[in-house]
């Protein structure tokens, strides 16, 4: 992880600019940004820990609590909403016991409600980890999620 952060620093005129990339690296390594993970980033970039936490907490894609093995990011903004995204959100609650911001008991899925993932022409849409799924229906969503253990 430290080697990776060092490589990234070279891409910017100032060390601090490596903070977002470094947080991504730490999040990948630890699964989420624990206080220890953020401390490691702070040390690598010689920044105050408070500053790193303050920055990380601003961005919705940095996870400040443990996440499940698979992260569902479901869009519910207008184009997705009018084409049924709320029914999908309800389905995740009814079938998997999954609430926005929550994680299933078995740790298999976490759910985050997104503000537009740029798939409006193929709405409703979601990301599972980094895989994009479009034209979701109540039928195909279960099949898609079945691929993730």
């Amino acid at each position: 992880m430290l080697k990776e952060i060092e490589d990234i620093k070279a891409k910017y005129p100032d060390t601090r600019a490596a903070l977002l990339p470094a947080l991504y690296i730490a999040q990948k390594e630890f699964g989420w940004l624990s206080l220890d993970a953020m401390k490691a980033v702070a040390n690598a970039l010689n920044l105050p820990e408070s500053d790193v936490r303050g920055t990380a907490s601003f961005y919705s894609m940095f996870r400040l609590k443990p996440a499940g093995r698979n992260l569902i990011q479901l869009c519910t903004n207008i184009s997705c909403m009018i084409l049924g995204a709320e029914r999908l959100r309800d389905l995740l609650k009814d079938r998997y016991g999954l609430l926005p911001g929550g994680t299933t008991e078995d740790g298999r899925f976490s759910l985050v409600i997104m503000e537009c993932i740029g798939a409006c022409g193929t709405a409703p849409a979601m990301l599972v980890n980094t895989d994009l799924y479009e034209n979701l229906t109540e039928h195909n969503i279960a099949e898609i999620l079945g691929k993730y253990k």
């Binding site: 910017y12 601090r16 600019a17 977002l20 303050g54 920055t55 601003f58 961005y59 940095f62 997104m114």
Partner: peptide, 27 residues
């Protein structure tokens, strides 16, 4: 040229917030 990844903040599309974010701050 470097590709820099944002982290989910609509406001960072505003050009000065984008610059703060690029520099490693809250946008």
């Amino acid at each position: 040229l470097v590709v820099h990844l944002g982290a989910g903040a609509y406001i960072c599309g505003e050009e000065t917030a984008l610059l703060d974010s690029l520099e490693g701050r809250r946008g």
